[in-house]
Amino acid sequence: MSGTADATEAGTATVPASGWDEPEPALCTSALRKTYGGTVAVADVDLSVPRGAVLGMLGPNGSGKTTTIRMLLGLTEPTAGSVELLGHRVPEQTGRALPFVGALVEGPGFHPFLSGRRNLLRCAAMEPALFGADVRGAVQQALERVGLAGAAERRYRSYSLGMKQRLGLAAALLVPRELVVLDEPTNGLDPAGTREVRRIIAELHANGTTVVVSSHLLSEVEATCTHAAVLQGGTLIAQGELKTLLESGGPNLLVSVSDNESGLEALRQLGVPARVEGGELRVELSGTDSPEVIAALVRAGVGVYEARRDRAGLEEIFARLTEGET
């Protein structure tokens, strides 16, 4: 009885406080690398996710997020480097770690000719943590948790994109996990669905589950994560606590000017990186200083109303990345 209850409440305890493996991160990689032929998909990623953290893996499409996640879970064998998942080496001992890991990778995968419940039952049958009578209960609870109980008997074929995504979540959360990996969980969800996913992640976090969420949207990471890792072109360019990351970065100058276009042009001639942000110019002060920037703008006949110093945050880093990509 208690097994069923545990299975459906996604655990009830908090972050490990005094366990035997306390200092050990839930997940860590070293020099993780994956190449396909000559293309480098993931290059020397050293990632570390502390227990109980919610890590947002941030990066534009094609930055190696999914490949990294697949290597973390033993689906893909790394070309070089090592992965430790809940203290077990991957891929050699993946099987020992995976019972404690729930995952939704590369979108939901189910059989169209089976109902949602049948699909989940099939997943549940493969779940080492479920026994006999627990299976049906766990499936029912998981369906309720993602709000699919009403559509459980419908064939998966007839589900909307959002419902499919929810079913994928349900499969990842069939039993309480130590680690949950969600690859783009809000893909295809409407705002309500997105809120629902955020709620679930918060719930998992509250219960002490480590969560890894990948996204190409900063807002989502900001809303749910305690930690963040930023990937670009297969390289990990930043990782750490979200708070720290948001405040890190080089000094910036925010300038309110009369004409943004002429201002940008003037700065470009000077060789100073700048862009328009919220009706103002955001100028990087890496190779120059504030007076020089303002002087340049004034020389170009651009009126300066206001100038204040700011720091480039995660958003800044991320915005630059995504711009570079597109």
Binding site: G3, A7, G11, T12, T14, P16, G19, D134, P176
Partner: peptide
């Protein structure tokens, strides 16, 4: 009921 200090998992696992 969760009393353990870590994520509570069914014993069988």
């Amino acid at each position: 009921t969760g009393t353990a200090s870590r994520v509570e998992l069914p014993s069988g696992i």
